[in-house]
Design a protein around this nucleic acid. Structure first.
Lengths: 340, 340
DNA sequence: TTGAAAGCGTTACCAA
DNA sequence: TTGGTAACGCTTTCAA
């Protein structure tokens, strides 16, 4: 390493025999500067291991090119931070942000501040927010939106809001899953999940709708409200069977993790899947097909979700109109349900 | 919202009737300032929704309080970005960084720059690097270290390096897994993974060691080199059985994902786990116990790993000596292996 | 096509 | 215990 003090744009410019302005423009590839000059400076920068100081340029331009991604969980007992589906969303968002020249600052709702707009935006930590999950409570999101923070939410796009929400067609997903079980001959179908939660509520609506449409006696069906974790599902299924016997022959799970918890409980009791009980999950996490039997599930298109979220966020930076958007889902038919 | 222009420290100070210096110190909770003044200013800031501009303070202090976490994968066919174990590490690192007042900038090795030190550190994007995974090639890490970037790596701590590496006792892990299978009566034990990869190489060493120690004929054992994904494991096991029949009765998998892929292939062929073939995984991902049979595995302590990594990184900021550290592992005995 | 200079919002030195 | 002031390193307006 050299014994010189840290290289700055001014020194680099000096080295090249041009002004700082020219150097700045050259490194930012500004077409105002002659192409030869630009290339010369860019190479010089590389040779000298020089990188523009982002703290300085952010201060000057008032743009950070950073997006804060907030994993919005209520607490650890809720949908766990280790749910592979949510992490897949983060990963896809990261790819998409990179594509647009943005970087990802990862945060979670357990974080210090309660005022996201203030903490991230006013402080110039980030230009915008991508919030993963509405949870059961969108107060913090509303506060951030009201403060003028550019943001987009992954959640239930049916909810009326002042900010764009991107999410799957959960209602139709719940419908598809339930209808699939009915067509496979299920008569007593459990809904396993938390209908209080916005997205899960929509899935539950679809479930109810499918039951109605098929003249299945709703009263004989059962909505079982649990935390959206495999552990909760496992315990609930065990408890249910212990107390009431095997009174159901199908399960619509609010997520794959929930489905897998239920699956485990059933298999431990030597209940045949899908003949005694058929199961449909939601999400299509990578592991869904590794299970035995492989899990039938409703696939959510996370890559498209990431694309739309970043799109809606960037539109806000450009003062363009934004809107919530619903993403199509599809049923992935595997072996945890009976073929029709 | 007010119609005033953006609030700055200077304006806030004016509002409070103190100098900017005092306001700055007060908001940074500098004990030089009288407690009453500090509290008054902190409250005023809150009331006015004011947050110090980080771009400015980072420029001034030359510290960002940001750590870049780099998921260092060679490409998509390698250990996938969706491996729950790695994501768990990221999540734990995030918690730990927050505890120390740092924020996490998430990146992956597919990212623009090849020179991490230059890209993240020289540019004031981050103060340090946490690199998850050595991969098979540590050139980029060496370059970054040589450029003086403070960094710490999650990988194989046995590797000699100029930077601290935190990792599990992989050798002992491989040994434990293998010994466990041997004690359970396995005679022909497969190692499923990529020994070229630093950590997996250590696990393989432990495997060999255990075989030797128990006078098992090494030549009858088999090291099967595959990508560390469940898909590769699934395909390889199928191919092996198709070509050579069931010539093994135990599998030491280099990761849980690999184990689960193998498990699927075996179950599809109605091979009894653990009686016909016993399996031990590595990592103890959350899903390991959801499988049927639940996966016996070597647990890595990611929370401790996160703690040590952040510790070693912060030591570098304070010019303190750093060192690689090995984390103890333990065998989690479940049903994919025979009880001893 | 290039250069001079002001200014982004902090922090910290020095002085009081 | 507080205040004045320079400086952090860049971008951009205005002028040449």
């Amino acid at each position: 390493m050299s014994n010189k003090s840290k290289l700055t744009l001014a020194k680099l410019a000096q080295l090249a025999g041009v002004s700082t302005s020219t150097a700045s423009r050259a490194l930012n590839n500004n077409p105002l500067i002659k192409k030869a000059t630009r290339e010369r400076l860019q190479q010089l920068a590389q040779e000298n291991n020089f990188s523009l100081n982002r703290a300085a340029s952010r201060l000057r331009t008032q743009k950070t090119h950073v997006i804060a991604v907030i994993l919005n969980f209520i607490n650890d007992t809720d949908q766990s931070i280790s749910d592979p589906f949510l992490l897949k969303v983060v990963s896809d968002v990261n790819q998409e942000l990179n594509k647009h020249g943005y970087e990802l600052l990862l945060s979670n709702s357990l974080m210090a501040s309660d005022d996201w707009g203030n903490y991230f935006i006013n402080s110039s930590r980030a230009d915008g927010l991508i919030i993963i999950g509405q949870g059961k409570n969108d107060e913090k999101i509303n506060t951030a939106a009201k403060s003028g923070a550019p943001l987009v939410v992954w959640g239930d796009p049916m909810v009326t809001s002042s900010y764009p929400i991107i999410g799957s067609d959960n209602n139709y997903g719940g419908y598809l899953a339930t209808e699939h079980l009915i067509k496979g001959g299920c008569k007593h179908i459990l809904f396993l999940g938390d209908p209080e939660h916005a997205e899960m509520g929509q899935r539950h609506k679809g479930y109810t709708h499918a039951l109605n449409e098929n003249d299945l006696d709703i009263e004989h069906q059962l909505t079982v409200s649990i935390d959206i974790t495999s552990k909760a599902a496992y315990e609930k299924i065990n408890q249910l069977i212990l107390e009431q016997g095997l009174f159901f022959d199908g399960i619509v799970a609010a997520s794959d993790m929930v489905a897998l918890g239920a699956l485990k409980a059933l298999k431990e009791r030597y209940i045949n899947i899908p003949n005694d009980v058929a199961i449909v999950g939601f999400d299509d996490i990578a592991m869904a097909e590794l299970f035995h039997p492989a899990l039938t599930t409703i696939r959510q298109d996370t890559a498209l979700a990431a694309k739309l979220m970043v799109e809606q966020l960037i539109k806000q930076f450009n003062q363009q109109a934004v809107k919530s958007q619903t993403i199509d889902i599809k049923l992935i038919n595997r072996n945890s349900s009976r073929t029709i």
